[in-house]
């Protein structure tokens, strides 16, 4: 291979830079976020584990069904709890604080969903 003396150090520098956040934090992933759960509601629209991993796809599916297909606005869980298939007037009626619920995980995962560019978050109490 040509220029081995340049390529190998170059690769080392590259890998070092890319992995900077890992070794800078000493392999520590930081404190696991604890989103605040609603006190009054008995169950969520789906299983908690499913919601943790897949709420974004679920919201997108609701969105496309309601906006584009004129789908049903209300739905019920297997146990019969009725809910509104809506971020603003569904989810956020139980999860009344965007800061204490949504943001905790989103900040940890460094994602900024654009939901709130249009949808109005509930008034934060305090």
């Amino acid at each position: 291979m040509y220029d081995l003396g340049k390529i190998i150090p170059g690769l080392i520098v590259f890998v070092g830079l890319v992995s900077f956040p890992i070794w800078y934090n000493g392999g520590d992933a930081g404190a696991i976020p604890k989103p605040e759960k609603p006190v009054l509601a008995k169950e969520c629209v789906a299983d908690i584990q499913y919601m943790r991993t897949t709420h974004m796809q679920l919201l997108m599916a609701w969105r496309d069904d309601i906006v584009r297909e004129g789908g049903a606005r209300t739905w019920a869980t297997a146990r019969g709890t009725e809910y509104n298939r809506s971020l603003q007037s569904g989810c956020m009626k139980c999860h009344t604080s965007k800061k204490k619920f949504c943001d905790t995980c989103h900040e940890y995962a460094a994602v900024t969903p654009y939901c709130w560019d249009c949808h109005i978050a509930p008034q934060e109490t305090k």
């Binding site: 004129g70 603003q88 007037s89 654009y114 560019d117 249009c118 949808h119 109005i120 509930p122």
Partner: peptide
């Protein structure tokens, strides 16, 4: 602000939706 309806965001087109 009507809290029951979203706003729009910068950079999209909008119009009457016949109050869907």
């Amino acid at each position: 602000l009507n809290a029951d309806f979203p706003t729009r965001t910068r950079g999209v087109v909008e119009k009457c939706n016949f109050c869907a």
